[in-house]
Amino acid sequence: MVRFPPIPCLRSAALLAFLCAGALLPALPGTAHAVEMGEDGLHKEPWFTVTFRDVAEDIATAQAEGKRLVLIFEQRGCIYCRQMHEKILSDPEVSDFIKANYMVVQYNMFGDEEVTDLDGETLTEKTAARKWGFVFTPTIVFLPEEAPAEGSVSQAAVATMPGAFGKLTFLNMFRWVREKGYEGEEHFQKYHARIINRMREEGKAVSD
């Protein structure tokens, strides 16, 4: 499974107060648009899918729609989550690709909503995050096309992207998974570098 070097939004009191107080900060410069805030303090995209968070059922639902299931873990006050929504997911090139190819379900890193793991264990969002080893927000988890016969989400995930990245890295990760790059010999970093080199050869601007 592919993992990225994390860019954390940790829960410690000092960092949470200083780095993750996004809900208390003024609008970020260059913000594309304001994002709706839910009662749980998480930013909401209108195209996120609300489910009962039974992961096996969600994989099957996504598959029936010709899509892949993605879980996004966020937390209240996370400035990196806010940047992801306002600067990355607001971009039509990114959002249109994700909507066409993925079913996205949002999880609250410290939430209490019920979750059913692939192994049948009933958890809460926060205990699921601990069980699966997710400690950064945002963390984006890519699931396989079909639910495995055994194992948990952390074992089944084909790729995990923790932290906030620029548009091209972010979008290329979704493209790489859609193309099943994790089954081939070309690691994501090489895939990403190849696309950047191609863009430069075509005279296109590359920002990340």
Rank of each mutant, 00 (worst) to 15 (best):
A56Y: 11
D58S: 07
I59D: 07
A60Q: 10
T61G: 14
A62N: 08
Q63V: 08
G66A: 04
R68L: 15
I72M: 03
I72F: 10
F73M: 05
E74W: 03
E74I: 00
Q75M: 12
G77I: 00
G77R: 01
C78S: 08
I79N: 14
C81W: 00
C81R: 00
C81A: 01
R82S: 07
M84I: 02
H85P: 00
H85K: 06
H85C: 01
E86W: 05
E86A: 08
S90L: 09
S90G: 09
D91L: 15
D91Y: 10
D91R: 14
D91S: 08
P92K: 13
P92N: 11
E93P: 10
S95E: 12
S95A: 13
D96P: 09
I98Y: 09
I98H: 10
K99M: 06
A100W: 07
Y102A: 05
M103D: 11
M103L: 14
V105Q: 01
V105E: 03
N108G: 05
V115S: 08
T116N: 05
T116V: 11
T116C: 05
D117I: 02
D117M: 06
D119W: 04
G120S: 07
E121L: 14
E121K: 13
E121M: 14
T122L: 15
T122Q: 14
T124C: 03
A128C: 09
A129H: 01
A129E: 00
R130D: 14
R130A: 13
K131P: 07
W132G: 02
G133A: 05
F134V: 09
V135L: 14
F136R: 11
P138I: 00
P138K: 06
V141N: 05
F142Y: 07
L143S: 04
P144A: 12
E145Q: 12
E146V: 13
A147C: 05
P148A: 02
E150A: 13
E150C: 01
V153M: 11
Q155G: 11
Q155N: 06
A156D: 09
A157R: 14
A157G: 07
T160Y: 11
M161G: 07
G163T: 02
G163H: 09
F165G: 04
F165H: 10
F165P: 00
G166N: 12
G166L: 05
L168H: 14
T169M: 10
T169A: 11
T169E: 09
F170T: 07
F170A: 06
N172K: 13
M173F: 10
M173S: 04
F174D: 03
R175E: 13
W176K: 02
W176E: 03
G181R: 09
Y182S: 03
Y182K: 02
E183G: 08
F188P: 04
K190H: 13
Y191Q: 02
H192T: 05
H192S: 12
A193L: 13
R194S: 12
I195M: 12
I195H: 15
